[in-house]
Write a protein that binds this DNA or RNA. Sequence first.
DNA 1: GCAATACGTTGCCGCTCACAACAAACCAGC
DNA 2: GCTGGTTTGTTGTGAGCGGCAACGTATTGC
Lengths: 393, 393
Amino acid sequence: MRVGPSQDEIRRQNLGALLRHVHVHGATSRAELTTTLGLNRSTIGALTADLAGAGLVSEGTPKETGRAGRPSLVVRPESARVYAYAYSIEVDRLRAARIGLGGEVLDRRGMARPRGLDARETAPLLAGALKEMHQHVPPGSLCVGAGVAVCGTVRRADGLVRLAPTTGWVDEPIGAALAAELGTDVPVTVGNVADVAAFAEHARGVAVNCDNVIYLYGDVGVGAGIIAGGRRLTGHGGYGGEVGHMVVVRDGAPCECGSRGCWETEIGEHALLRAAGRSDTPGRDALLAIFDAADRGDARAQTAVRQAGDWLGFGVANLVNIFNPEMVIFGGTMRDLYLAAAAQVRSRLNSMGLPACLEHVRLRTPKLGEDAALIGAAELAFERLLADPLDAG
Amino acid sequence: MRVGPSQDEIRRQNLGALLRHVHVHGATSRAELTTTLGLNRSTIGALTADLAGAGLVSEGTPKETGRAGRPSLVVRPESARVYAYAYSIEVDRLRAARIGLGGEVLDRRGMARPRGLDARETAPLLAGALKEMHQHVPPGSLCVGAGVAVCGTVRRADGLVRLAPTTGWVDEPIGAALAAELGTDVPVTVGNVADVAAFAEHARGVAVNCDNVIYLYGDVGVGAGIIAGGRRLTGHGGYGGEVGHMVVVRDGAPCECGSRGCWETEIGEHALLRAAGRSDTPGRDALLAIFDAADRGDARAQTAVRQAGDWLGFGVANLVNIFNPEMVIFGGTMRDLYLAAAAQVRSRLNSMGLPACLEHVRLRTPKLGEDAALIGAAELAFERLLADPLDAG
DNA sequence: GCAATACGTTGCCGCTCACAACAAACCAGC
DNA sequence: GCTGGTTTGTTGTGAGCGGCAACGTATTGC
């Protein structure tokens, strides 16, 4: 039974709301915060004082106001002093970054990912990148945690990777392994790359102010980050959004998951390469080569792209009917496929989607670029701070 | 930007939490409320005093305690005095009820639904049932509103029925029409029957304490009420959960919605009747006749049931992979089909579902019986009261 | 009849935010 | 440079809420 918050929870929520605002929207005047948050001037003053005391924000005088009246103090996130570590575990590389409050990338490292490494072997590499970056951290800084974006199903409770086709991982405790490397003062949160990218696009990308969003992310497989009613849809264990394993062809082609006819067997990398009759090593370059060939008039590539686009629209239509989203975002390889076959996607969607569900749905590509996964991973860590700024500070 | 609640919102939420508890769990001692809600004795006392003052609850001394110590006062919902009207618009009948706080059905009316009636013609019938029931309402009672359960997609904003295969309605303003009949003192809320039944099962049925639930409801078509993260998934316009129009056979049999190969063309009434080679008038009796024939060894009925069960498992597996629910509930005709073909459903689900998503999913039939739609509809109206007990009281 | 137990009631406290009055900082005009 | 108008930060006060502790009250068990 849910019970209302106590007074100190009000304070926590208001501190979080203020900090979230400057985190997402950047430096903001106190006057503007007053109107946006709907709180009193005096309350905003007290909140900023608390946050400034914890070293999370700083205040300064604005340069030029242009208007009459006393200029309002500007509240800035302490981007250089308050930061999170972000990791992205991808097919052939590992990426690490130190990201400041406000979303600025302060430092970054990248390395090739040796194939066949399990979680316990990967964690030291990630920890090593952290130690390197840690040397350049100015004194008096505050680390709020680390976030990891993984391609695969992630158990919410402890960051266990249940199944990751990209890395070949099965039940790999990357969350626990990394936590053991980093110690207790750096809380680790692990998330699916699609979830995390959806989170980032919702916070500071194309999907700002959209409370019902499907972010479709493709690499080797296809997954979705789903935001329903303004909140991330995780499902019971944290495995929600595995739309790539929605079966679209009964008893179709076998999928790595053990099932048959999964959506990703029709729109994934392998499907396109096979249909286009190519034997390139899989990867983004191979895909782009197909789209390029199609552009140049290669008939086989064209039909491959059209067919994959049709299947893309097929699955999106199903999802649109089920979720009635406001926006569908195509990320990763799905972005390329969507851009190459938008007509097929639209056509299939229009013929299969319920008119009511089609009314307000917008198809978009991500606003955040390559760094979406890293920024989203950092966002996971920042969530902890925003939930209780003074405790985590 | 979300901001924390003010003090009076705390009060509202706590009043709502207390009222919700006695509404859902029935009469409860103040001592028990103290521990369940985590509030102080004095606070519980003040809250109950407020609610009793508004006539929403009453207090009494318990009959026997069996324990030492001063017996705790029991807080009862004013079931007879505080009520909502509930309607269910079904294929061949209209049902109306007056339902007391706590979920008790105080009065009910039913009538055949003449085919071909639109919303403006139906509303007076519903209003007539209300007027009849209103004559038996004891003086000093409080009506908190009316809820309507409809088979079809419902626009959340105003209760417009966009598409209802059951009644043949297209863009029928049943919410507005009924509101015009009932006047401003009876706020009307319209909901999809599956959504509403899911809501009821989540509040007081099998899905208590399950925060990720899919309630599959079948009549002529198939829809789902989805609860994700403890909240109803409505989608952007309110059309979420149209799983019956998830396409499972590309370019398959035409569906009434204009698309082809929709799930409900494989597991709906018509599909079973066709596959079993029957020409009965569609309806629950015809379905039960098929299941009965299959039980008695009719080979054609058996294969029809098995195949439909297989398709049922197919769709459920897709939904389980997408939502990672804790529970799937089979209601309406889906209950009958599930019970008749549980083996096929399970088998298909196990072969198609991701292991991680299968781990904790439970398949269940509803706990609330025929009245689920009515109780859920009333629950829609009660939500308004529970959100702000003293204002609506 | 008495002690033990559990609970309702009351008064007080700390907390939070809203509000109003005042002080400070800026702009425009003279 | 000074004055008035404007906008904002700051400060003190007040109301509302829940927690807390002391006290009164109702029941059980001896």
